[in-house]
Design a protein around this nucleic acid. Sequence first.
DNA 1: GGTAGCCTAGTCAAAGTTGAATAGAACGCA
DNA 2: TGCGTTCTATTCAACTTTGACTAGGCTACC
Lengths: 216, 216
Amino acid sequence: MSGPSAIRLLVLGAVRMHGRAHGYQVRNDLEFWGANEWSNAKPGSIYHALKQMAKQGLLLAHEVAPSTAGGPPRTEYEVTEQGTEEYFSLLKDSLVAYDQKMDVLSSAIGFIVDLPREEAVALLKKRVEAIEAWRAGVTAHYIPEDGPEQLGHIGEIMHLWVHSADAGAEWTRGLIERIEGGAYTFSGEGEPFVGVLAEDQENPYATDEVHPGDRE
Amino acid sequence: MSGPSAIRLLVLGAVRMHGRAHGYQVRNDLEFWGANEWSNAKPGSIYHALKQMAKQGLLLAHEVAPSTAGGPPRTEYEVTEQGTEEYFSLLKDSLVAYDQKMDVLSSAIGFIVDLPREEAVALLKKRVEAIEAWRAGVTAHYIPEDGPEQLGHIGEIMHLWVHSADAGAEWTRGLIERIEGGAYTFSGEGEPFVGVLAEDQENPYATDEVHPGDRE
DNA sequence: GGTAGCCTAGTCAAAGTTGAATAGAACGCA
DNA sequence: TGCGTTCTATTCAACTTTGACTAGGCTACC
C-alpha cells in the first residue's frame, strides 16, 4: 500500500455525477452500486472522506439548508476544478495499478466510461502488462535455485497469488475485447450513463437481506 | 469487514512458533514469509498488534532485557492459553471465510499445517461451499428481472467479482486434492514444518529489490 | 391524539494503519 | 581515534476505518 483509495474515488465520482450532493445521497448511491459489498464504504468513511477532501480543496462545502425531507440539516458538496483533476488522476491510476485491491479496480470500472474509449483500452492494456510484470518478478524471486519444494506448503501462498493474478489478467483481456467490440457508451459518445438516484427515487437494491456466504 | 484480521493471525502464529519472541523477530519472520508482499505487515502494525493482544491477554509481555545484539532493549512475548485458543479460532475462521481479503486466506494457508490433515480438508471444503453460496446469492440479487444489460458497464464489476470467486474456488479445490493426495506434513504427522529464522540466521528474502510491477 | 417505529442525516470514540523518526551499538576504514 | 554507515529495535503523530450512537421529523395505527 498505499495506492489509490477506493472511497475517495467513489465519493468524488458520486458527488461529481450529482453536481451537488450531501453525504446521505452519496451513501445511497454507493449502496445502489453495490459498493457496500465490495468496498469499505460505510457511512463513517464516506463522511470522513467528504470532510477531508473539502479540507484539501477537492470539494467545496456549502454549509447548508435544513433537510427538505425531515432529519437534521445537511452539508452539500461540489467538486472543484482541482477535485476534477484528482478524480481523473485517481481513476487512471486505479485502472492501471495492480496492487490486488479489488475495491480500487471495481470503483474504477464503475467510472471507466468517463474516459474516452481508446484511453480506457490503453489503460487496461497497461494493466495487463503490469500484472504480467508482477507475475514474472514474483515467480523469479520466490521460486529460487533449489526448486520450489523447499518452500513446503508456503509455496501454496505464491501459487494462490499467481492464480489470482492470472484470473485478473484474463478478465481484463475479456473486458478489453468487449470494449473494443463497441460495448457500452464512453465519454463523447452521446447520452452518458447516469448511475445516480434522483432525489425522490427509491433504491431497488437497498435491502437488509443477507446473502448466504456473506461475512458481516 | 471485519472478519478475521490477517496481522493478528500472523503475529500470533509467529510468536507461537518461537515460543517467545520480540517484535523485531516477528517482523523478520513476516518478511521471510513474504508477508510484506501480500499483507499490511509493516513494523507499526506489528508492534501495535503485539501491544493490543498483550492488553487483551492473548500474549504475555515480559518487560525485558537489553538487546543481546545491539540496539535498544526489547520486550518479549509469549502466547497465553487464551491466545492459543484465539489462534486456532482465527485460523479456522480465516480458512472458511470468503470475504475476498486474500491476505487473510494467505496467512491462514501459512499456518494450515498446524491443523490435522482431515480438519484442514474439511475446512477448505466448507470454504468452497461458502464461495459457491456467495456466488449464488450475488448473481441472484444483482442480475434481476429485466436482464443484465440494464446494468450497463456496472455489470462488469459483478462479472469481475464472480470471475475472481470462481478462480478462488478452483484454486481451493486444487489445494484440497493436493492435501488429500498426501502433500505436506500436518499436525501429528512427525517433524513439524518450522518456518522461522533462528537468532543468528540471515534472511534469504530480505532485499531492497523492487519487483517490476510492484506498487509501493 | 399519542406513540412506536422508521427514515433522514450525521457525529464520535476507539481501533487500526502508515511512514517517518528515534536511538543505541557495532563495524569498517582512513 | 574518530566518523559515517548499517543493523537492531522500537515509538510516534497523523490519518483512516469502524460500529455504535444521536436526534429530528414523518407515518401508520390503534
